[in-house]
Design a protein around this nucleic acid. Structure first.
Length: 312
RNA sequence: GCCUUGGUAGCUCAGUCGGUAGAGCAGUAGACUGAAAAUCUACGUGUCGGUGGUUCGAUUCCGCCCCAAGGCA
């Protein structure tokens, strides 16, 4: 008995994932599970390039708008939510399709990462973050990790505050080093057919610039204003998203709008690069040249080949 | 037309008391185990504006030329 199949459309930002996902979902009787760490937040529509109401009416989209913007969300939560969503879609006899650009989330699903099972502790993180505010503090944290968890300390650079803090957090909460809680990858219950939406670099960068201008024209600045005036703190996780963190100073400190827009474009390009790094590592990915007029047919052919290959 | 100050990495500039040069930013590659649109790491050859001269040796000193900014006419 073969594993249930899950279709994945992944790739860098602005490469046409959503459009391809929609087209394939219509053709194949699919439902979309968003694989995006920012689209989970409500009231952040323009800057996260969320599927429109019209698109969501045509094809069900899951894991969009499931959190308030000041709430926390995590890979572990996504792992659970997405697995649940996939099972529900399968039980309806539809094709589950993961569409989005968050490489870490995809990796958690495909490699079945065991994440230690230790939830975060916001107060503790606050304390660790404060301590890491200067070089001496970061050194101190890393030294402390060296004592309780030398394996992790050797792997982590002392400037990587996020990971050093997480490792210390796990130790303080459980008394065990995170390196002993991490488990080897396991075999996922699903068979993933991963399509990668690709573009020549210069072309993608050009698309990014255009899209940022479109977001601004669509009222991104007002969206950020509304979030701030509804009481969302600028430190919220959701406000660290590209397009949001750059516009906050425009509103609160009357920073240059032009400069902020240039920053959004630059950060988007860097983000696209990091996404490529994630997806290139996914060895079973099938890259599609999105500039090719026949991409859609090629995508269907790739899926067809995958279905035949795994059913034998 | 004359005077002044500049012309060095994609950009802004430092520097070489004459031995062919280095920062920041940009860019590229990579890492990623409950923050991931986050966080972090690594990577620096370019006719030193052009051309002639002095010199064992010139990006550096001298002459001329070109370009830019400012000043005087």
């Amino acid at each position: 008995m073969s594993k249930p199949q899950v279709l994945v459309v992944a790739g860098p930002t602005a490469s046409g994932k959503s459009a391809l996902g929609m087209a394939l979902a219509k053709q194949l009787g699919g439902e979309i599970v968003c694989m995006d760490s920012m689209q989970v937040y409500r009231h952040m529509d323009i800057g996260t390039a969320k599927p429109t109401a019209e698109e969501r009416k045509q094809i069900p989209h899951h894991l969009v708008d499931i959190r308030q913007p000041d709430a926390a969300y995590s890979v572990a939560q996504y792992d659970a939510d997405a697995t649940q969503a996939i099972e529900n879609i399968l039980s309806r006899g539809h094709v589950p399709m993961l569409v989005g650009g968050t490489g870490f989330y995809l990796r958690a699903l495909t490699h079945g990462l065991h994440l230690g099972g230790v939830p975060s502790d916001p107060d503790l993180r606050e304390k660790l973050k404060a301590e890491a505010s200067d070089e001496a503090g970061r050194k101190r944290l890393h030294d402390r990790l060296q004592v309780v968890d030398p394996v992790s300390a050797a792997r982590l650079h002392e400037n990587d505050v996020t990971r050093v803090s997480r490792a210390l957090e796990v130790f303080e909460l459980t008394g065990k080093p995170i390196s002993t809680l991490e488990q080897p990858p396991y075999d996922s219950p699903f068979a993933f057919c991963i399509l990668g939406t690709d573009f020549e670099r210069a072309a993608l960068y050009c698309r990014i610039d255009t899209r940022v201008d479109q977001m601004m024209a669509a009222g991104l600045l007002d969206e950020v204003k509304a979030l701030l005036s509804s009481g969302i703190p600028k430190e919220a996780q959701a406000m660290q998203g590209i397009g949001y963190k750059e516009l906050v100073p425009v509103i609160t400190q009357s920073a240059s709008l032009q400069g902020a827009v240039a920053q959004i474009k630059q950060n988007s390009r860097r983000y696209a690069k990091r996404q490529w790094t994630w997806f290139r590592r996914e060895d079973s990915i099938h890259w599609l040249d999105m500039a090719d007029p026949a991409v859609y047919d090629k995508a269907l052919a790739t899926i067809q080949a995958f279905v035949e290959g795994t059913n034998v």
